[in-house]
């Protein structure tokens, strides 16, 4: 490659990088700046006198705090634990027993979960949860998320399990361990990194989802931050823009933290798994 061409390619590269960075950063900029401003505005400006007053007001708002620190956590952690546990058991079984067509089965599951999704499934899910008497309960939300996210979780987990050597389990069995003992003392420690990934993935998904809690939860004191944020910013005629932005910033922090953690630990990349 000759020099001018090389220089041109470099310039092209940097121009591209700058454009992409700008395009992806700009919409987020407002969310980072507005909470510290004194005046409610949709405009992006660096606050001349940054203030934490908005955060103080948010912390005084019992409904907002309950949504974020109680409801969102109950639902996201609940679903996370359930999904991780069930997906691990299932994936382990699928990777260690021989069932005809099990690969196809997993693919079918994951695609099926993409088929039954979103607003299309909300009518029967609403009616089902009602029939089960679980409307307006954390349990109902956790169960629906578990059903929806499990296939992908199993898929990711199975990929992980298949990459584990079986020799440890075999030697445990040879040494007379029962199946349960083997699971607890050999398999569990080995699969922890995979469980971590699933857990974080499930947590982030539930934490950020809007439609399911919006439809299934009826009383304000059970709503998670996702629906609380929405109800704040659609509120008629209330000058609460800075408040909402402060709240939204608090709300995204756990996701941000988990991302940074995963990125630092493993590098954020595909394990063969995908987001639902």
């Amino acid at each position: 490659m000759n020099l001018p061409k090389y220089v041109l390619a470099r310039i092209g590269f940097y121009v591209f990088v700058v454009i992409v960075a700008t395009a992806f950063a700009l919409p987020l900029l407002w969310l980072l700046l507005a909470p510290f401003g004194r005046q409610a505005t949709l405009a992006v400006r660096i606050p001349s006198e940054p203030t934490l007053a908005n955060f103080v007001s948010v912390f005084r708002n019992a409904f907002a705090m309950r949504a974020l620190f109680v409801n969102s956590i109950i639902q996201a952690v609940g679903a996370m634990l359930l999904i991780t546990a069930v997906a691990t058991l299932t994936a382990y079984s699928l990777s260690r027993i021989r069932l005809p067509g099990r690969d196809m089965f997993v693919y079918m599951l994951i695609l099926f979960s993409s088929v039954v999704t979103g607003s299309a499934a909300m009518v029967p899910i609403f009616l089902l949860i009602f029939e089960l008497g679980l409307i307006d309960s954390h349990t109902g939300v956790i169960l629906v998320f578990t059903g929806g996210l499990l296939p992908v979780a199993i898929f990711i987990m199975r990929d992980f399990m298949q990459s584990l050597p079986k020799s440890y389990e075999e030697s445990a069995l040879v040494n007379g361990a029962s199946t349960l003992q083997m699971l607890r003392h050999v398999v569990l420690p080995l699969t922890r990194p995979g469980m971590m990934v699933i857990g974080i993935w499930a947590f982030v998904n539930v934490w950020g989802s809007f439609l399911i809690p919006f439809i299934l939860l009826r009383s304000p004191d059970r709503m998670p931050a996702a629906t609380a944020t929405y109800s704040f910013y659609t509120e008629a005629g209330t000058p609460v823009i800075t408040l909402v932005s402060a709240y939204a910033l608090l709300y995204i922090l756990p996701v941000l933290a988990l991302y940074l953690f995963v990125n630092w630990r493993y590098g954020f990349q595909f394990f063969g798994g995908i987001k639902s």
Partner: peptide
């Protein structure tokens, strides 16, 4: 940046985009 756009909660994203695209004061 690109990944955050993907994984951040949708209501927060919806809110910040509403501000981004606002006709009068949007970024």
């Amino acid at each position: 940046l690109v990944t955050l756009a993907w994984i951040l909660p949708e209501t927060a994203i919806g809110f910040t985009w509403t501000a981004f695209l606002d006709g009068r004061r949007g970024t």
